[in-house]
Amino acid sequence: MADITTIAIVTIYCLLMIGIGGWASKKVKNTEDYLVAGRSLGFWVFVLLMVGTVCSGMSLLGVSGLGFKFGWPTIWEQIFVPLSIAFCIIFFGVKLHAITRETGYITVQDYLAHRYDSPMTLRTLSAIAGIIVSFVYLVGQYTAIAIVLMWLFEIPLWLALIIATLVVTIYTTIGGLYAVAWAALIQSLILIGGVLIMAPIIIFYAGGFTHVNEFMASVDPNLVQPWMPGGMVFTPSYLVSFGILLMIGLACAPHVINNVLAVKDARLFKWAPLLGFLIYGVVMFLLKFAGFAGIVLVKEGVFTLPDVANAQDFVILYGIQNAIPHIALWSIFAVIVLAAVMSTTDRLMLTIGAMFSWDIYKKIIRPDAPDKQVLLISKVVVVLSALVTMILALNPPEMLAFLIWMGIGIMLSTFAVPLLAGLYWRRATGTAAIVSMALGLISAGIFGAYYQYIEKLPLHFSFYAVLVSLIAMIIVSLATEPVSEKILDETKTGWFIRCPEK
């Protein structure tokens, strides 16, 4: 059982988060405050909110796990995942924020409904797809947190889940995006500081960076190549499709893209892409190198990984356990993982709350609903989403890793084409957006299942689904009547990022 220092450190962190929630709850007066933080986010809060949202608990364990298993060919995820932050800000954020200043969108569904002149069908389809992928992602997050808490405290799964869920649900429910954004500031700083300290210790413990690489080359030359030869998993063509999936898929994920609506001032988009990319890029490189160090430590018999299917996800935990001989320091790592998981789950829960209360209840079921009622429903849905997720995570589906990849793949094939075509192509029509979104969703399911159960495809499955979605968008758009010029001008549609001066 954990000692008193460990319990104290984790408790202090949890109380700090609930304290932020209490402070934020005083600032929440209406739905706009709750869902977009009154559009008040400044530079560092926004940048670290984006880092915290994209960096999840699974990425913390999974990045080093993948490095441990496949070596250097997997470093491409380090380039493309942080790049999704920059992609989201530049290709979606700048224009969406400029339109929102005039229209006051609360969710991205507001934009899609406006731009495609489809107040019911497209909004409903988009919100339902968004809620489904957010749930899949959420269950994966809670499983990551359970792995770490069970390892640290040697407590049963249900207790670990209840602790984690309770804390994140309290501050998210009472404080909305105010709490989520300011908690992300603290959580991202904990994450960055923690990884900067922990990863070098593990690498040093394994004999230093040069030794680790020489050792990897002697184990298997493929471990130190930038990609693998034909016939292996990470071939160059697969890596490109995988990289694009990660970059664009994460950029248009509902819990990531909605952050741009909460920004206070467009001037912050000047340096936010660079800072978001660099901060998260450095964190991911260090985690990956810690995974490489794990290859040395396991081969030299310093520790053996548990005999489970996802054994590589434990490599960073065991690395810390061996490289740092004091239990109180492990609890700091537990707080790092808690911070990474919470900064993603809180945003996901709030996104589900927003899509349900705003897009489905307020905009479709009861347009005359008073603001207080919408706010209350948001809060109820946040709590319900936490409960449902916790029940699902108690008996995690066997195909969890597959489901998480499926979630990102579905995000990409459902949202990328309607969003990009909507923002930049004046000829894209509402009917085409509905067909493109529906076909993207369905074909992602088909190609994903085919890839998983029948045979491996040469490119990542989502690549084919996006292609279907894109072809549908072009053909149906050209066959249907365009949206009115008035709407296209209101939504600043055209081949530009910065809006031309009027």
Binding site: A86, P273, L274
Partner: peptide
């Protein structure tokens, strides 16, 4: 990594409503 950093620096300097 370096190429992307340069591109994003470029974006920052030329980012102008």
């Amino acid at each position: 990594m370096i190429i992307i950093t340069l591109l994003l620096l470029f974006w920052g300097f030329f980012y102008q409503n």
